[in-house]
Computed example of a mutant assay.
Amino acid sequence: MRSLYISQQGCYVCLQQETILVKQTDKILGQVQLPLLEQILVFGKSQITTQVIRACLWRNIPIVYLSRMGYCYGRIIPIEQGYRQLSRYQQQLLAVERLVVARQIVQTKLKNSRVILQRQQRRQSSNLSAVAIQSLEHLIEKAAKADSIEQLMGFEGAAASQYFSALGECISNSEFIFTGRSRRPPGNQVNAMLSFGYQVLWNHLLALIELQGLDPYHACLHQSSERHAALASDLIEEFRAYLIDSLMLWLVNRRSMDAGNDFVHRDGGCYLNDSGRAKFLRAFVQRMEEEVQNDTGERRPKWDLLMQQVKAYKRFVYDPKQLYLPYQIR
């Protein structure tokens, strides 16, 4: 299964028998067979025919509309994805059950962040990274004993500050400077890549959550709102460092990204432009197609990790005694 990214502007998406075609004027930019398609993500201004929309609804293929910067405007999903069955179980989860899972999510996020810094520390030692690694270890222990969501979020925030300050030490390309995380808007090229990558990954998880019949607006760690699918924000935490932060470092340090030509500065922020988005998405897909060994010993693409974790959360909802265990980097 694959996702179709439409990142160039002015594209026309149509259906030819069982094949979706992405065109720009008379040129075919891409095509994918419907049976192989998992979801469509449209960045910016492109047109999708009614025939494509109807075919996707019939096959439970979500269509996600995003701004060129990665902000999600909304999704087209089949009417039967109403979350009625599982939502009742999610609402019945006890506060203590949600807290236990929230602890697991934060602990695993911090452990995965620590692994990223440890790997970089072995390549090039840094005092700042060494201090951050020690701080993360301390905060992991604190998170395990947190007695409220508010306390957990405080530990997570303190850990993020330490982690991102050290992440800049892992960048060897002098064209890119990173001293800390800034989101609204992204303050520089590194923050632009992180924000865009997190948004793409968040939307992938949201689609999988909906396909499994879970209510994305009932979560354990994050608070939901009318525009915030909190469960996607919960499940992305374990994958941020592993899938997006490491990809950003790889792209920057291998000089695959051009600090001058792949970004645009506007509205007080820095964002990926058309060429930058295309490069990032191409590298993201390539990274997600890499195979890793799962718990049963099988080698499966990294895409499968996302689905397995969503299914694991679904099992927890049905039977809270089966504690949800986030994915931890080996």
Rank of each mutant, 00 (worst) to 15 (best):
G276L: 09
P62L: 05
I236W: 01
A160N: 10
L99C: 09
L231Y: 07
Q286V: 05
E291F: 10
Q107T: 11
H228M: 11
P62C: 06
I244K: 01
Y12I: 02
L205N: 09
E238F: 04
L205H: 09
Y318I: 12
A144S: 15
T179W: 00
Q8L: 11
I61W: 00
L281F: 11
V285Q: 13
G157L: 05
Y71F: 14
S148W: 06
I209R: 00
Q104C: 01
A160K: 08
N261I: 06
D319F: 11
L34W: 04
V310G: 00
L34Y: 03
K145R: 13
R254P: 00
E237M: 08
F43L: 11
Q286G: 09
V310L: 01
Y71W: 09
G187R: 14
A159I: 09
N261F: 10
L15M: 10
A230S: 15
Y89H: 15
L37C: 07
S233F: 11
G297Q: 12
K279Q: 09
M193A: 13
L117F: 03
K279N: 02
L306V: 09
V106Q: 02
L251N: 03
L15K: 14
I149K: 13
Q91T: 06
S135Y: 01
K311V: 13
G30D: 15
L325N: 04
T25R: 15
I79S: 13
R75I: 06
I77K: 05
S275M: 09
Q151V: 06
V22S: 04
W250M: 04
Q124F: 01
C56I: 10
S125G: 03
Y318M: 15
L325C: 08
L15R: 13
F239K: 02
Q8Y: 12
G30R: 04
M288T: 11
Q162D: 15
K279V: 06
Y313F: 15
L305K: 08
